[in-house]
Amino acid sequence: MRSFLYIFSALAVVALGFWAYRENYTTQEAMREVRDLHREIGTAHERLQVLRAEWAYLNRPDRLRDLAELNFERLRLLPLMPDAFGKVAQIAYPAAPLFPITNPIEVSSDNDPAEEDQP
C-alpha cells in the first residue's frame, strides 16, 4: 500500500510539473501577443496623429479659398462672408397646428370647494 502511495505521489508531481510547464509557455505566448498588440496600437496612434495633421493642413482656410477661386467656373462656390449668414429671427418656423375640439367637457362651479370654506 505504501509503494502505491509513493508511485501515485510521484505521478501526481510529474503531472503537475507538466501542467505548470504548459501554463508557463501559454502565459509567455499570451504576453507576447499583448506586447504585439500594444505595439500595433502605438503604430495606429502615430498614423492617426499624422492623418489628423494632414487633414488640418489640407483644410486651411486660405488653401480652401484659393481652391474655390481656381475652380469657380466648375463648382460655382462663393467665398464665405460674414453677411452670408442669417439671423435666427429671420427663420420662418411653421405655425403649430391647432386641433379642433371634438369632445368638449362642460365645467361647472356649483360644487366649488372654495365657496364652502367661506363663512
Rank of each mutant, 00 (worst) to 15 (best):
Q90G: 13
E46Q: 13
L98K: 13
W55T: 06
A44C: 01
R52F: 00
L98R: 14
P119E: 06
S3F: 09
Q28L: 10
Y93C: 05
R63V: 14
Y6V: 06
L37Q: 11
W19C: 03
E29Q: 10
R39P: 00
Q28E: 06
D112N: 15
T27L: 13
R47D: 04
M1K: 07
A56N: 14
R74E: 14
G42A: 13
A44E: 05
L48W: 00
A89E: 15
A92V: 11
L16E: 10
F8A: 12
F18N: 02
L75H: 07
M81Q: 13
R39A: 08
D66I: 11
L64D: 01
P113R: 04
Q118L: 14
E33R: 01
A95E: 13
Q90K: 06
W19M: 05
R22I: 05
N59F: 07
Y93F: 15
V14Q: 08
G42D: 08
A20L: 13
E73D: 15
L48P: 00
M81N: 09
E115A: 12
R2E: 07
S109Q: 09
Y21N: 07
E23H: 06
A89D: 14
N103D: 12
E115D: 12
L75N: 12
A15N: 00
L78Q: 15
E46W: 01
R39N: 07
R74H: 10
E29K: 09
F8V: 03
L67M: 15
E115F: 11
A84M: 10
F99A: 09
P79C: 02
E115I: 08
S109Y: 11
F85E: 03
A92M: 06
D66K: 15
L64H: 01
Y21C: 03
R22T: 10
L5M: 12
E29S: 12
L80S: 04
S108A: 05
L98F: 09
A95D: 13
L11F: 15
A20Y: 10
L78P: 01
L67R: 15
E54A: 14
D117Y: 03
E33M: 01
D117H: 02
R52V: 00
L78Y: 13
Y57V: 04
Y6R: 10
R22P: 00
L48V: 02
P113G: 03
R76F: 02
Q28M: 07
A56V: 04
L67Q: 15
E46F: 04
N71Q: 14
A84P: 00
P82W: 01
M81H: 09
A20I: 06
